[in-house]
Nucleic acid binder design. Sequence first.
DNA 1: TTAACTGCAAAGGGTTTGCAAGACG
DNA 2: CGTCTTGCAAACCCTTTGCAGTTAA
Lengths: 140, 140
Amino acid sequence: MAPNTADQIIDETIRNSGLRVTRQRRAIYRVLSDAEDHPDAPEVHKRAQASDLKVSLATTYRTLAELADKGVVTRLTLEGEPTRFETSDAPHHDHIIDLESGEVVEFLSPEIEELQRQVARQHGYEIVFHRLQLYCRKKT
Amino acid sequence: MAPNTADQIIDETIRNSGLRVTRQRRAIYRVLSDAEDHPDAPEVHKRAQASDLKVSLATTYRTLAELADKGVVTRLTLEGEPTRFETSDAPHHDHIIDLESGEVVEFLSPEIEELQRQVARQHGYEIVFHRLQLYCRKKT
DNA sequence: TTAACTGCAAAGGGTTTGCAAGACG
DNA sequence: CGTCTTGCAAACCCTTTGCAGTTAA
């Protein structure tokens, strides 16, 4: 029977990735699940603290790295700032970064994705993953 | 009268960016000028040493940062590795990263560029700069 | 001459790791 | 219970910085 509550889904996600389910990992993954934005590791740590449990910063880094390696979480590496994280459950998307506010907007462009595949193919490659970031300012 | 030797062009480039021309900066910029690949700062330092002159690592970092801020040099920020550098004199291009060998291949796609502009516009933005990286493996 | 630049060595910031104690399965 | 995980603190790596001496213009 399929899991039905958010918590069950979280546990399942962690377990399916081959890791033991611990309170710390649950708390960390939930932070990303709930996040509207794209927090970095210290920020995830801070939010995880806000729950009942005490999670160390080391465990936060370790867990984020593990989950990212398992593909359950995605690293967002921006120019000149610490790595941010997001869950991988949303469909694939890329990012617009507002240079003034730092806000990050997600977008999806199947046309660009297709052209990327073509470009890669022309060079004898196939894409494993890609990063597309548009550093923008609000149009006047 | 326009500069005619490679060395004169290098000096001109540095001077035009508003910086004094020093032997260190000349050596550092020349390393990037000559590079076929995309070296990081310690590698640029190592190559600059290979010339006559002794350049410190601190100066290498400082110079690369200055030249990047002036737009003469471009930072290449890849996933999980130190920042690499390239001169900005080549026309704009994006990068394919070979995950096996670490090799970086440059490519150009006006179609993708145009689609990017459209996407940004749809979200009320205009692009200041962008990064597109295709992490690939050789097609079998 | 004098403001800009360099080298050195020490500091910094983000991230990782060794180890002993604790918890999941 | 055995193994995986955690917390702590120390270590790490890449990069930046303060300062005294040097150099381009």
